[in-house]
């Protein structure tokens, strides 16, 4: 394994660390590396780094490595870690913030997940609500797997669970304005 020069890495990571700390409100320095987060994490089995290791990277200012990790995308936001953390570190919130910043910096380790969330929010911005059929179709087409889960389609339609057309709410453009106002305040949507 490559040796890390910690002093230089620390200096290099400062800016992003400050950004992460400010946006998340989570002080990584509180973490004492007990691993209880990882021990209970339902997705840990699939991660390239355990949640504790992500916290460690942030503690040492190794921000790029944290931001490029799959882990921050695989986090299911179930809050088990934050609920049980003996140091009251909101790890889930840290993951969420790292993901937002990773996207901003163009580090997207899980392209499909990112695509899904983009399409989801596009649907919300356009219609005020999510059009599930449109979302799934769009995701499968853009995600280059047009037949994924297609077998659910017919029965879903029959059961009245998917409507072929989106439902657009009559909100006088309020939801669109919410998106616009968030963008005005620097939100990268």
């Amino acid at each position: 394994m490559e040796r890390i020069e910690l002093t230089a890495a620390w200096a290099e990571g400062q800016e992003v660390l400050a950004e992460v700390t400010k946006e998340s409100g989570v002080r990584a320095s509180k973490c004492y590396q007990c691993g209880k987060c990882t021990a209970g994490c339902p997705v840990a089995f699939a991660m390239d780094k355990t949640p504790r290791e992500i916290m460690r990277l942030v503690q040492l200012g190794l921000m790029d490595e944290a931001l490029q990790s799959q882990t921050i995308w695989l986090c299911a936001s179930c809050d088990t870690c934050s609920t049980r953390c003996p140091r009251e570190v909101d790890i889930a919130r840290m993951m969420e913030t790292l993901r937002i910043i990773a996207k901003r910096k163009g580090f997207v380790a899980e392209k499909k997940m990112d695509l899904f969330h983009d399409l989801f929010l596009k649907s919300v911005e356009k219609n005020g609500r999510v059009h599930e059929l449109g979302l799934i179709l769009g995701f499968n087409i853009y995600g280059m797997q047009p037949l994924k889960d297609a077998h659910f389609g017919p029965s879903m339609l029959l059961k009245g669970k998917l409507s072929p057309l989106p439902h657009t709410i009559k909100d006088n453009g309020e939801v669109k304005k919410i998106f616009a106002n968030v963008r005005k305040r620097g939100g990268k949507l």
Binding site: K103, H117, I178
Partner: peptide
């Protein structure tokens, strides 16, 4: 009446303010 999507579970992974505002 004319409720909107709350953003779960995509907004909070994209922008914190949007996740609160929706």
């Amino acid at each position: 009446p004319e409720w909107n999507c709350c953003g779960a579970s995509s907004a909070h992974l994209t922008d914190h303010l949007l996740a609160l505002a929706l």
